[in-house]
Design a protein around this nucleic acid. Structure first.
Lengths: 195, 195
DNA sequence: GTTTCGAACGAAAAACAAAATTAGTCGAAA
DNA sequence: TTTCGACTAATTTTGTTTTTCGTTCGAAAC
């Protein structure tokens, strides 16, 4: 890790804590600079805007999350098991990232185009992963047969439902949920697509 | 229908058109009064607030919708068929009410406690219907077995997913959907719960 | 050449006040 | 019982000023 990357990581780390405490808007570049022990204008040597800091933060978190999930999914033999693992780990990984996710959900309200397009981009990747998984599982005759275009609609709806349930569990903090209850939904989806 | 109820229906009807054209906030009591051929203050003889007019409007639409669905559901023999009918008709009935639904979704943003509690109340009733249907279907050994409390979580999630998909289809107007595509999701849920 | 910073700019937000709309009340009239 | 015009209080809108904050820049430090 180069010196440059090290400082960038430091900025991200400090920004992350501040964003979680104050939210994106109420955190100023001055705040981030101070926490990093630098002058405000110095931040612009590493990032060209406040938005870019946030983007990089979310991107890095998301990549880390996807990476972890991917390792486990690849370890599974059957596609059912792969799908199950993908879904279950999505919840597990989201749990620890809930505070950041909350910022995204709450401060996205109004107009914020940046956040909307970021969430869209992230969802798109997840949809892509699921779609590919489905395709292979169908080829393998492990899942019911669906047309390609229908498969995409299904993947999209699953990702939407996933997000929504994560909001209920981790942001609205519905106490009725635990790992066991989450499995009910995962199984419901599995039963829905399995042969 | 008493004279009183007739005039109330007239007010609701006019308000509905105005709300759909201008939204809730931009429609004034003056507007509604003028459309009904009455003085503004006369409206308060029938409704004690603008909110109450909106509540009554949504309530009546929703009851009408539920009524229609109920008739068809009762006509079905198996519980699978009942569930399928409930889900499919939810979409059909929502289609024609999309403009009103859009107002609810769009103008609910900020603080609007009224709308939030209304949507919650409506969802709760739908959840109740599904829950009861599931209970009977399980007793009848037509659906997989679930604990009572899990059943409620499942019903809630189905209603949430339903709403969400309806937003995508009728408000964001995703053109890829038609009755046939909707059936895919309905079948997915059916496969998920059927034995 | 790389990295840091203070000063300065412009856009956006916050704060404040004044003016205009509008939801809701009330008493009188039909 | 029902309607309405005049009134009130609350909210929204508008316009103005001030402050804050993201971003740029050129000069200094390393």
């Amino acid at each position: 890790m180069s010196k440059d990357e090290q400082i960038k990581a430091q900025i991200i780390e400090n920004a992350s804590l501040l964003f979680q405490k104050w939210g994106f808007h109420k955190t100023t570049m001055e705040d981030i600079a101070k926490a990093t022990g630098k002058a405000k204008s110095s931040l612009y040597y590493y990032y060209k805007s406040k938005n870019e800091i946030f983007e990089d933060l979310i991107e890095s978190q998301y990549m880390e999350m996807l990476q972890k999930i991917n390792v486990e999914v690849n370890r599974c033999e059957s596609y059912s098991k792969k799908l199950e693992t993908f879904l279950m780990l999505s919840f597990e990984e989201m749990a620890s990232r809930a505070p950041l996710y909350e910022i995204m959900v709450n401060e996205l309200n109004e107009d914020n185009k940046l956040l909307k397009s970021m969430i869209k981009a992230i969802s798109k990747r997840e949809v892509g992963i699921l779609e590919e998984l489905f395709n292979k599982a169908i080829e393998n005759k492990e899942f019911r047969y669906y047309e390609k275009e229908d498969l995409r609609l299904i993947a999209e709806q699953i990702v939407r439902s996933l997000r929504q349930l994560q909001v209920v569990i981790y942001i609205e903090q519905d106490k009725r949920f635990n790992k066991e209850k989450i499995r009910i939904f995962v199984d419901l989806i599995l039963n829905g697509v399995k042969k």
